[in-house]
Design a protein around this nucleic acid. Structure first.
Lengths: 137, 137
DNA sequence: TTTACAAATCGGAATCATTACGTTATTATA
DNA sequence: TATAATAACGTAATGATTCCGATTTGTAAA
């Protein structure tokens, strides 16, 4: 997913491509890991943009709903990143810098047989630690 | 892990076995799924106990550190349950009632080879949905 | 290219979970 | 049972997120 794809997706679904929405997309497209709402706000403030919590959170949720961003929750705080899912996969997430590495293993096939009468609605598989880069600090 | 084991563990580590600590253990021992701090507080208030946030959260964290409780984060809220880990496993968690079912599959063995230069510090594998009981409501 | 209006943003207040703190009470043990 | 350390109390503070009424903006049609 890149910025233009996301903007097309917005318009296609009847949403307006506003300045703030583009700013938010720009930010996430140039990051390559999970970032928080606070990270985004700090970035926008450094660019001397006005920032309303309402706008930030409303759009983050919208982007999540539309599959433009993917999210996870770390230390009680929601984290967001551009959706990189051409196909189903999971992530290693660096505890230091938030950068991710895709993991193609998915254990769900092995699991489903043991959950015969259960209605499965979702799953989460994440690995946490330090990426090669952050181990040298 | 049951209440007596937990109390022994407390004393063994130099912690006092206070009334509040026992109340908290009693609550979680009679639940069989993930519960929040709020759930616990409500329960204690219904028993006409005085409840201080400080006491609740301090002890929940203590129990987590000691391995008496295990925790997960759902919808921005920490959830706790008695630790059931005799051996390593994961959980199906019911979105409705919080009850869990143990899953013995762990994908980490398959994953480690693709993370050769990464320092792995932890992982999370959870499955969400409705348990057989909650599908009929 | 203006107009109109639905949709989005703004700014700030409110909420919810969690943490912090100074004081008081309780526990283990000598 | 006296003592000292630990824990609980009550409440205030914090931090992330949500909500709200007023204002502005993007878009499609005139």
């Amino acid at each position: 997913m890149n910025v233009n794809e996301a903007i097309d997706l917005l318009k296609h679904n009847g949403y307006k491509a506003t300045g703030k929405r583009k700013d938010i997309l720009d930010y996430f497209s140039e990051q390559d890991g999970y970032r928080t709402a606070k990270d985004l706000i700090t970035h926008l403030e450094n660019d001397n943009e006005t920032v309303s919590f309402d706008t930030i959170y409303r759009n983050l949720h919208l982007y999540k709903e539309m599959g433009i961003l993917e999210t996870t929750e770390l230390n009680g705080e929601k984290h967001f990143r551009m959706n990189c899912a051409k196909h189903h996969h999971h992530h290693f997430i660096c505890n230091e810098c938030g950068r991710t590495k895709a993991i193609d293993v998915c254990p769900m096939a092995d699991v489903k047989k043991s959950l015969a009468n259960y209605a499965i609605e979702g799953h989460k598989f994440e690995i946490y630690g330090l990426c090669p880069n952050c181990q040298n600090n």
